[in-house]
Write a protein that binds this DNA or RNA. Structure first.
Lengths: 377, 377
DNA sequence: CGATTTAATGCAATCGATTGCACGTTGATG
DNA sequence: CATCAACGTGCAATCGATTGCATTAAATCG
């Protein structure tokens, strides 16, 4: 119904699935050499071709619905116009917005993204990176970086444009885009202190990940700066950023009787686990204990109670990473120094934080519900 | 160290980023022709080669860390070992598990996935499909199908292996993998009826999408079969599957005074919107009105109230789609008839449903909170 | 008006693999 | 001992683009 295509059927058309038009087809139709067509079609070389022929080539190639063969292009030029995105698990809802950020920036420039999951598994990460580079991606965005990440360092050293997002490697030669976690933790602590909390515990993340390390570090520095005393009974270390670990750590905290009135969790999922552990002990959030998250992942505004958290710019992180790579991709030289971006965060106060119960931090209270939280020493 | 490569240095080696090994390099190192290496490396043709040489080739290619150039392979064979996944929005958490299902099945077979988003936009879907096929993907998984989808039909007719997931096209020649929505709606209605509900409203989805159409259709058929009477004041049509539309439709329902004690929503996000609208009117869920979702997307077990919903096998849908495509990809002939799979669902009862207030459906109740829901006619 | 520059196009090599066909060995057969 | 299979390898074409260089035609100059 679209008009064109006279039934002369120049291309065999035997089976019906008429072969895709190639440069040669266009050249024949216009009556010039393939190299002329190639030049006419490439904006960078179009000026070499007579105006008239160039437009004729454009016309015909549209008529024939010519689409360059990416394999041939890639074989010749060594560029695939494909980038790789490595994430721990696409199912974890903090990653999809980052991925979209990357794709939305890259797509208009003709790049598509290959997304692979590693499940936090070292070997799978190595395999993923290896697969992607074997596939000849032009660059990589890695959300699964560990602080010590030999694969990533090797990749960067080898010259592949690569940028980590959300996390960083300790190796400063690998570029990164992260959020301002230090400031995020500071904002959150300030919020809790303002509410009146003095005994604040934390559920820290995996210290082999920059997120875990930086957030815990910021917790220690800021509590100290604010004049709060933190004892070992007030920190729990999660082995993974998930609900089960949040639950486990909260129970540990409760069992130790840290007497804390608030718990700052290294991310939202830990916080969700912590809240569920509190409920399991018959405690309420924020009634008995305030709990805070980090990331502001999707839906945490709908949970019970709506989570007070730090919003990181998921989408913006992806965008920034993509922009950085685009720039790298257009540099002919090896490129300048690695770049480390830190994007601003925002405190989102919802209902999982409230002022502490009167006197709850002063010692064993009459309320049996909070007796677990009394000061031990 | 690897023997060969006299320092004649045919490959510059100036910068140091030593070029990737090619078939030619392996051939030279072993002392045979590239075609021999190619055959030795291909399991299907290995038998043509002397055992000894074959193993030698394997050895050397490992030593040299030989990785076939995908562009060259693709150019020659016309297969990219890449599939395309088209989703409305990767940020919508029902899709990531499906994508993982696809990737987890495909990856072991050497396929990688290109993921693109369409934002429910016809043009963007057309562009996405066109981009993917221009990139030469071997097959496509499409989660963004509309009931009338000319692009998809064309693609299938043209011979590209394609399968829709979660949704279907009306064109039966396009294969699909969906969940048993009819049964899901039936289970949910049975659950509500068992709780004692008689006046049940629905917030139906976009009727241009198979999900919207099938779920609404099942609602009508099953309510009728169960002897329930449904009037026009009991159905709201959402234009999109999101919270805002859920809210709007719920408000419409309330304004119309349908007197319903339960609302079956076509998906979870509509349900979340509906609950929020109820709250906005000072009504409680499930106290005043029970609300049900569909899909069991991530986190709906944590929201307030935890949502009663139908669990569809997100991951399984992806897996099934991938398995289907793998099979298609291995057929040499055009392939048999299109396949339409329907995967089983499960009723998940949580706290957003409860028995209706006594007499609430019998007429205006004394409770001002539910007076909005009285029977009008 | 002939010589020389400039502009536009064609030629052919190349990227790295796959694969039909030809060739040379080897061993079995009559 | 000559003949012929069968087997294992090598040769060379091919996939579809890009690009340095050669070539031709047109334009400029002296």
């Amino acid at each position: 119904m679209t008009g064109g295509k006279p039934e002369t059927g120049k291309t065999g058309s035997a089976a019906g699935a008429s072969r895709r038009a190639t440069l040669k087809d266009v050249a024949r139709a216009v009556g010039v050499h393939v190299s002329t067509v190639s030049r006419a079609l490439n904006p960078a070389t179009r000026h070499l071709i007579t105006e008239e022929i160039a437009t004729r080539v454009l016309e015909v190639s549209r008529e024939l619905n010519y689409r360059p063969n990416p394999a041939a292009y890639s074989l010749r030029t060594n560029r695939s116009h494909t980038i790789g995105i490595v994430v721990p698990d696409i199912t974890n809802s903090i990653f999809p917005p980052m991925i979209r950020g990357v794709e939305d920036v890259l797509a208009p420039h003709g790049y598509a993204a290959l997304v692979v999951n590693t499940d936090l598994n070292r070997e799978r990460e190595a395999a993923a990176i290896s697969t992607l580079s074997a596939r000849g991606v032009d660059a990589m965005v890695v959300a699964s970086a560990e602080r010590e990440d030999a694969e990533l360092s090797a990749l960067a050293k080898q010259g592949t444009p690569v940028v980590t997002i959300n996390r960083r490697t300790d190796d400063a030669s690998v570029s990164s885009v992260i959020s301002d976690e230090i400031e995020g933790v500071r904002l959150m602590l300030a919020h809790l202190v303002e509410l009146g909390h003095r005994r604040i515990a934390t559920i820290a993340g995996n210290q082999n990940l920059s997120t875990g390390q930086r957030r815990y570090d910021a917790f220690l520095r800021n509590t100290l700066a604010m004049g709060l005393h933190i004892g070992p009974e007030q920190v729990g270390f999660a082995n993974a950023f998930n609900e089960a670990e949040g639950r486990r750590c909260m129970e540990e905290l409760l069992a130790r009787g840290s007497g804390s009135t608030a718990v700052l969790c290294a991310n939202d999922r830990l916080a969700i686990g912590a809240i569920s552990a509190l409920r399991g002990r018959g405690l309420s959030c924020p009634g008995d204990v305030s709990v805070t998250g980090f990331n502001d992942m999707a839906m945490v505004d709908c949970i019970d109670p709506p989570l007070t958290t730090i919003r990181i710019p998921h989408y913006g992180i992806g965008q920034a990473a993509a922009q950085f790579l685009l720039q790298r991709l257009n540099e002919t030289d090896g490129g300048p120094a690695p770049l480390h971006q830190v994007l601003p965060v925002e405190l989102i106060v919802r209902a999982s934080t409230a002022a502490p119960r009167k006197g709850s931090a002063e010692g064993p209270s009459g309320d049996p519900a909070v007796s677990h939280m009394r000061i031990v020493r």
